[in-house]
Every structure is written in C-alpha cells, then in structure tokens.
Design a protein around this nucleic acid. Sequence first.
DNA 1: TCTGCTCCCTAGCAAGTGCTTGGTAGGGTA
DNA 2: TACCCTACCAAGCACTTGCTAGGGAGCAGA
Lengths: 192, 192
Amino acid sequence: MKTSRRAELLALSAKLFAERGYVSTTVRDIADAAGILSGSLYHHFDSKESIADEIITGFLDELFGTYGEIVAAGHGPRETLEAVVAASFDSIHRRPAEVAIYQNEAKHLMQLPRFGYLNQRNAEFRKLWNTILTDGVRDGVFRADLDVELVYRFIRDTVWVAVRWYNPDGTLSASDVAKQYLGILLDGIAKR
Amino acid sequence: MKTSRRAELLALSAKLFAERGYVSTTVRDIADAAGILSGSLYHHFDSKESIADEIITGFLDELFGTYGEIVAAGHGPRETLEAVVAASFDSIHRRPAEVAIYQNEAKHLMQLPRFGYLNQRNAEFRKLWNTILTDGVRDGVFRADLDVELVYRFIRDTVWVAVRWYNPDGTLSASDVAKQYLGILLDGIAKR
DNA sequence: TCTGCTCCCTAGCAAGTGCTTGGTAGGGTA
DNA sequence: TACCCTACCAAGCACTTGCTAGGGAGCAGA
C-alpha cells in the first residue's frame, strides 16, 4: 500500500490505454476504474495527455537505461545483440501495457509537439541497432550481404510486435521467447 | 473515371483510416476530403462501420483468394512459404492502406459482432502457416527443433508490420523486401 | 412532360468528449 | 485557533461525435 495514489492511477491508465487505445479511453473510463469521478482526476494530473506522457517517459527512461548498461559492458556485436533482444523481451514481460502503448500510439502522439522526444528516442534506437549490426558485419560475425537498415527494421518490429500475443502469466517465459527468436534470427529456419 | 463515386469514397476513407486511425477519423474528415458534407456520406453508406467493413472485406477476400491459388498449386513447403511471403509483401505494395487498417484496427473491431468474420480469417491464416511449417519440418526442409506456433507468429507479425515503413513509391520494391526477408528468415543473419 | 434515380445540401439532434469550477471532509502543522 | 494539504464530489460548459430528416438540382427513360 506504499504506492501513491498517483502511481496507482498511472498504472490503471496504462492498462486501459493499452487495451482500448489512447483515443478510445475516456477520462471517465479511467475515473470509473479508479472508483472516482472524472473531474477528480484533474486533481492529480493536468490533462489526459500528461497522463500518457508520464507513462511513456517513465517507460522509455527505464528501457534506455538498460540499453545503456548493455552497451557500456562492451561485449562483441553478437553478445550485445543477444542482450538487447533479451532485455527487450524482458521489458515486454514486465511492462506489457507500456510497450503496447508505445507500439500503438507513438506514431500518432509523435505529431504533437509535447511528444517530440519520441523522435529522439527513435533515432537513438536506430543508432543502437545500426552500430551493433555494422560492427557485426565488420567483425565477420554477421553476413556481409545484409542490408543493415532493413535488418534493423525487421528486428525492431518483430521484437516489439510480440507484445500483441505474449502473455506474462503464460508458460512461455520472456527468455524462452528471446531464445527462440534469436535462434531464428541468427541461424534461420531452413535445415542446414 | 469509370470508378463509381462509392469506390472513390471507399478508397478515400481507407487512406484516412490508415493515416489517422479508425476512431480518430471522423465522418466529417472523410466528407471534407471528398468535397461534400458529412450528411451526404449517408446517401452512399449506412454507417461509418459499414465503410470500414466494406474496405476490410474487399481486401481480405482478395488476399485469401491469392493464398488459395498458391496452396492449390501444390508446391513444396519451402516454395509455398516463399510464395505466400511474396504475395503478402505484394499486397502491402498494392493495398497499403487496407493492410494498415487490418493491422491497426482488427484487434478492436473484432470485438464488434459485425466484424466476427475477422476471427475466422485469423484462424484460416494460422492454419495456412501451421500447415506450411509442419509439412516443412516433416519433409526435413525446415529445422526440426522449431516451435511451429512461435515461428508462425514471428513470420506473420514481421511480414505485416512492414506496412509501417514500406514505401510503395520508394526505390525498394516489394519483391526486394520479400527476398531480403526470406534470406533472413530461412538462413539467419549469422555468418556460417 | 412526368417519373424515378443519383447525388448532394441545409439544418439539426442526442450522446458523449476533455476539462473547469466551487466546494467539502478529514487530517496534519504551528 | 488558524492555516494549509490531500483527495475527492457535484454540476456543468463548450465542443465534437455519428447520424437523421427533409428537400432540391440534374439527368434518363417512358
């Protein structure tokens, strides 16, 4: 019970935003789920936008903190790739609502000045992956005929889109999924 | 100019639904884009829902028609997989708006009774891929240690999510993308 | 010329949207 | 006792939503 009311409301909003979408979730929906009236929400938050903002910012700060640690560890391209993929699936496991919001709403929210930082984050993302992949090609651990930009998109999309079907309470753990996925990504599905 | 007014309005609506999302696109937005008033839309269509319905139904009928032809050709698992992937990227090329709508809105629309057929289509999809993959494992063309259900999800998601960045007018053609993707999927990105 | 059809307009309604306002109950602090 | 804080309520405002009712202009066939 040490969680502040504010944090409760944020978690609750994130769940609703993830399930119904940002625009389809009304402030009354959120208030109903919290057992209060819609107007009372505005004691805690400035606007519906600022609720979404706080959810996304908190999530991205945590995620990029983890990525930063991985890169700082200074392992080889293949190990770094594996760690980043594993960390991403882990974040899907721990923050499914936040990932879903980022996946589904980022494109539209990015157009608002307030969410301009999403563009920066995307750029960071792209740079991270491009570095891993080009380093890997240079070191000869990844195939030389790769279209790095294309591979980056495929990895990025495939990892995050898993939030649509991944079940945090299911039998398949995040690391199981990461292992299977890395198996396909690195070695393919065709028999040697 | 032989295209009926109805077809024009459908194409126009599809574009807007894809860009802004179904809920965020208002009937006034559609009417404005068509150069008429919102009320006039209801001469052509019963409701906003029926516009989306017609768009999605038309697209899925065409898509599954193509899939049916591929399966009917009776090639091996690997050739069938390649053809299905190529056909999917081709549909992204030819009907980007429809694919985007299906990707972004299906989850929410499926909850409406009217769009119950989306569940059936998903089941058809799953069966198609499961057959291809299990046949391939049985025939020894795909690795025996694959989690078929997981691979199905990865392929499905990765193919369709490409609609987010694929540019029909760009230098990269749909078959280029399909080739690159099949290269990764079948043989992986790691150097042998 | 009459009739019917297509396509659109004018004008609006009921429901719902995010958000604001003035206020209250209960508690802590000096 | 005086003051401030947190957390909420009741009521409603300005606006947007999908959709409707009724009508009119242009054209085609009889």
